[in-house]
Every structure is written in C-alpha cells, then in structure tokens.
Amino acid sequence: MLELRLVQGSLLKKVLEAIKELVTDANFDCSATGFSLQAMDSSHVALVALLLRSEGFEHYRCDRNLSMGMNLGNVSKMLRCAGSDDIITIKADDGSDTVTFMFESPNQDKIADFEMKLMDIDSEHLGIPDAEYQAIVRMPSGEFARICKDLSSIGDTVIISVTKEGVKFSTAGDIGTANIVCRQNKTVDKPEEATVIEMQEPVSLTFALRYLNSFTKATPLSETVSISLSSDLPVVVEYKIADMGYVRYYLAPKIEE
C-alpha cells in the first residue's frame, strides 16, 4: 500500500513540468526514504535524478519498495488538473497496475481522483558516485535560464569557464559570437540573488545548449541553481526543492577529438 500526501501539491506539478520534456517514460521509485526517479533522455546524453524525501510529505506510507512506470506527459496532463494550492496524494495498492492522484482543495470542498494505468518500463539505473568538483557556481536560477536562452539564439554549444574572474559563458554561430561573464557577488540584500563561486581550480567545458535549456524548465522550483563542474565529469545542474529534496540534471560534455 502506498499513500503519499503532499500538502504543497504545487511542488509535484512543477517537478513534472521540469522533467517531462527531457524524459518520456520513467519509473518512480518509492521506498521508506522517499520518492525518487532516475532517468536518461533518449540519446543518453543527459540524466535527471529526482528526490522527494519522505519527511517532506505530511503523510508518507510505503509498506514496501515499489517502482511505478509512468508516461511523464500523461502524469503532467493529470497534475495540470490540480489547483496550485491543492493537496496532492499519490495512492497505489500493492499489486495493482494503476496509480491514483487525489487532489483536495485547501478548504476540502472539492476532491478529485485521477487514476492512471502503470507501464512496464525496463529502465537502467546508473551509479553516480559523489565527487569533488573543481568549481561550483551558485546563482539566481532566473539568471541562468536567461543566459542559456540568450546564448542559444547565437550558437548551439556553450563553453562554461570558471576562473578567479568569475564564470564565463561563451558561444559562437553563423551570425557572430557572445560572451557573458558573471562575477561573484555576495553584496546583495537577498541571499538568493547572490552569485557565489567556489573554485578549487580553473575549469572549462563545452555543452550543448538545447539540453541546458530543457534543464531550465525547473526554474520555478528554486530561486537559485547550482552548477558543478569538473574537467572529467558531466556538469551537474541542481535545483533544490524547499525542505524536500532536489531535481538534479547531469549533462555529458562535448569531447574535443
């Protein structure tokens, strides 16, 4: 028996909007520790990892580990029927081949049940070891989304370089080139507006902008984003989900021949 009750249902709505473009079908894994997902895009160039810890739910009942295969587009269609202030409960009976999303309005005067058939998805699970990154940039998520969007109108790939000057985003295309430098800036009145750069050593990597742009669909989840870079690893773009967990995107770099 699975019954997960999330008072801030809007978080789940935003999570689906954040991942449904990158991944079509995926398994949601439920265990005592939380509700998670790991899935790659069709080209295996990018990977998304979601964690919503059990403590973040008002009620979390998961009698035994469960993996539920779903089409994320269909889940998104159902969750769009929930109000942004609704309480969302995910329910599934042991051995049943369906999952139910229940939406309760804040004053409990409207209760909706959406039931969806589960799918058999044989997805791979990659082992992602914790790593020390050569540079970690924390910046306003809207700022990062704007940079990725602007640069993709000039070129297809972006070189992200971190030096003691700051973090530089560079691209080039048929019409010309673009360079955006963001310097560390801690003297802001609100901490979420700060740009903080932790650099162990300078690093520079090249990435396809279309994946970074699909990652920025997670912007509504968090005011800030962290970008972790190391010369021999995929970049990790992380949006924390307040008090509950995170959506983490991994993107393999372009490898110079």
Binding site: M40, S43, H44, V45, A46, L47, E124, H125, L126, G127, I128, T157, T206, A208, D232, L233, P234, Y250, A252, P253, K254, I255, E256, E257
Partner: peptide
C-alpha cells in the same frame, strides 16, 4: 569538431 559524450562515458550501470 567535437564529439558529444554520453552518460556511459562516465557512469556505470549498477
């Protein structure tokens, strides 16, 4: 040109 890496260049199936 440059080749696009994939997750398999960096992480193992577990």
């Amino acid at each position: 040109g440059s080749l696009q890496g994939t997750m398999y260049n960096f992480y193992e199936n577990c």
